Computed example of a mutant assay.
Amino acid sequence: MAKSIEQVKTEFRKQGRSFSDWAKENNFPPELVYRVLKMNRPPIRGESHKIAVKLGIKDDY
Rank of each mutant, 00 (worst) to 15 (best):
W22Y: 14
L32A: 08
G46H: 05
A23Y: 08
I5D: 06
E6W: 02
R35C: 00
G16Y: 02
A23G: 07
Q15G: 00
N40D: 13
E31P: 14
F19N: 03
I5W: 09
N27S: 14
P43S: 10
P29Y: 12
N26W: 08
K38Y: 03
M39K: 15
R41P: 01
S20N: 11
R35D: 11
S4P: 02
P42G: 10
E6L: 00
D21M: 04
L37W: 07
M39H: 07
M1V: 01
E25S: 12
M39F: 03
R13C: 00
K38C: 09
G16V: 00
M39R: 15
T10W: 11
T10M: 09
V8Q: 02
L37P: 05
N27K: 06
I5C: 08
D21I: 05
F19Q: 06
F12H: 06
S48Q: 14
K3T: 00
F12V: 04
W22C: 04
V36K: 05
G16T: 05
A23W: 14
I44R: 15
S18D: 05
K9P: 00
E11G: 02
F12K: 06
S20Q: 14
E47M: 11
K9L: 02
S18N: 00
E25V: 01
M1E: 07
K9R: 15
T10P: 00
E25R: 08
D21T: 10
P30H: 05
S48P: 10
Q15F: 02
K50Q: 15
S20E: 11
Q15N: 14
A2Q: 12
S18I: 02
P42V: 13
K9N: 01
R13L: 09
S48A: 15
K3H: 10
E47H: 08
H49K: 15
L37K: 05
E25D: 12
F28N: 11
Q15V: 01
N40E: 13
K24L: 10
H49N: 14
N27V: 02
R41L: 08
N27Y: 11
M39T: 06
P30V: 04
G16L: 11
E25A: 15
N27I: 00
R17Q: 09
S4A: 03
R35Y: 10
K50G: 10
E31F: 15
P30R: 03
H49S: 12
A2E: 12
V36F: 06
K38I: 01
L32V: 08
M1W: 07
K14N: 04
K24R: 11
M39N: 11
A2P: 12
E25Y: 02
P29I: 04
S18E: 06
K24M: 03
R35Q: 07
